[in-house]
Design a protein around this nucleic acid. Structure first.
Lengths: 194, 194
DNA sequence: TGATTTTCTTGATCTACATCAAGATTTTTT
DNA sequence: AAAAAATCTTGATGTAGATCAAGAAAATCA
């Protein structure tokens, strides 16, 4: 059960059978249909989720009602609003499903208990956050130093195949440009390649 | 000795006298003069440093030779290139001193040994990285959704007083705009306030 | 203290991407 | 299978911020 999650964990820490079983026993399972919220702005983020199948997006709505996509999460990624999850304060993000999605998730108390009982999990989550932090820093550098076309190419590398899976205007939002601009950038790229 | 560091650690974890002493015994001290490198592109990042006094910047140089500032670090912040530090691969960043600076630092083996000997440190560093990650995500959202003036105001909040301490063109680089644009933005803001 | 380097400002012009508009295509719903 | 909704494309025009240029002010150095 949840093989993909166990394989993911095994990339970072080594668990014995018993620890694996215990970990799995703490997880809850859930299906989300397309467009369903996992977290809604103003609510406190109670869970961190691992995606078994599907795709979620984290986005913020600005004062003009425009959505800005912070990130996508697909199979084998964790999602959630860490800030709200740890502080218990309301989230400013929305997280919803771009496809029918299946997740397993943990609440905060369970995560703390895991750290207590199996300290290796503190390492597991530290490494995950560390990798996410490093990637996010790279994205900052790109956004302050590179034109939209380069950032789109980086998106294609970071999320292979996702380009085919989700609407282009979601990708435009992630890149910080308009759907019209992304459409023109793609036309350009096709012309170059053939 | 190094009171500011002990106070910083105490915000996240509780250490007894012995643990404190042991931790301090593992640190190395160093002064950097203005413009001196802490890390140079192509080298492997061997240390993570805590700033006792002064200011460092992390930046990348693009193919046209332009510098792009990823972050500033002042008193009570940790700096380093986590990616290079953990993978042992050469860094693509430069880190240098914008002022005469005093730091204490740890190498990778020492940090791992600390985690081993005093597991609370795994938590300490997880929480630091987590906070840095959350802040960096906010910066991504700003950079894809807000104009330069708003981003400058956010910089002023995030780094109070730093505006007075370092050259404006460094701040412009951090914001992803030219020094000329920042100069005009500041003129605008002065006009508004009086 | 004077000389040199670095930093900051202002003006003129340019450009990547935004905005507005409208039709075409694809997907979803009934 | 038709209707409705969502998505994508293309054109015309606007604008935030870039680039180029050059002088002023401030900091650093000899």
């Amino acid at each position: 059960m949840y093989d993909s999650l166990l394989r993911h964990v095994a990339k970072f820490i080594r668990l014995n059978e018993e620890e694996q079983a215990f970990f799995l026993s703490q997880l809850q399972f859930r299906k989300l249909r397309k467009r369903q919220y996992f977290l809604q702005e103003g609510d406190v983020s109670k869970h961190e989720a691992f995606i078994l199948k599907g795709c979620l997006r984290t986005y913020e709505v600005d004062e003009n009602g425009n959505e800005h996509v912070l990130s996508f999460a697909i199979e084998d990624w964790w999602v959630g609003d860490l800030y709200s999850f740890f502080t218990g304060l309301p989230s400013s993000y929305n997280i919803d499903a771009l496809e029918a999605t299946e997740i397993v998730y943990l609440d905060h108390a369970t995560q703390e208990m895991l750290y207590e009982k199996i300290p290796k999990f503190e390492r597991y989550f530290r490494l995950l956050i560390q990798n996410a932090f490093i990637a996010t820093q790279r994205r900052v550098i790109s956004s302050i130093s590179k034109p939209a076309e380069d950032r789109y190419l980086e998106f294609l590398e970071k999320y292979p195949l996702l380009d085919q899976r989700i609407p282009q205007h979601q990708i435009a939002s992630y890149l910080g440009i308009t759907p019209e601009s992304l459409s023109r950038i793609r036309k350009q790229l096709h012309r170059k390649k053939g």
